[in-house]
């Protein structure tokens, strides 16, 4: 399991969502299940980075896609 330290806090990647030719990476904090954040995967000078999103709208867009992806699983009945 890959652990990343973002703003001094340890996170694990939960999921990666492809959206509008971008890859949005969802992180979940290891110390608090309600701690979540998103980064965008970018490549620059041959290096790959996780960068912060630009604004709330971009966050909402990513969240919306995320929730859409998990909708069926969440509501799956046995």
């Amino acid at each position: 399991m890959d652990i990343y330290t973002l703003d001094g806090r340890d996170y694990q990647i939960i999921d990666i969502i492809n959206l509008d030719n971008d890859k949005y990476v969802f992180f979940g904090a290891l110390d608090n299940p309600k701690g979540i954040c998103i980064r965008k995967l970018v490549e620059q000078d041959g290096q790959k980075y996780y960068v912060g999103l630009e604004n709330k709208e971009e966050c909402d867009k990513a969240y919306k896609e995320f929730s859409k992806k998990y909708k069926d699983l969440v509501l799956l009945d046995n």
Binding site: D7, I38, Y49, C59
Partner: peptide, 25 residues
């Protein structure tokens, strides 16, 4: 709101900076 705060305008982090661990899985 916390997630917004933690997601917007953040410093880039190298993908290669990941630490591999099996704890807390």
């Amino acid at each position: 709101l916390d997630s917004l705060t933690n997601s917007i305008n953040k410093e880039p982090v190298k993908v290669s900076s990941a630490r591999n661990t099996s704890r807390q899985v």
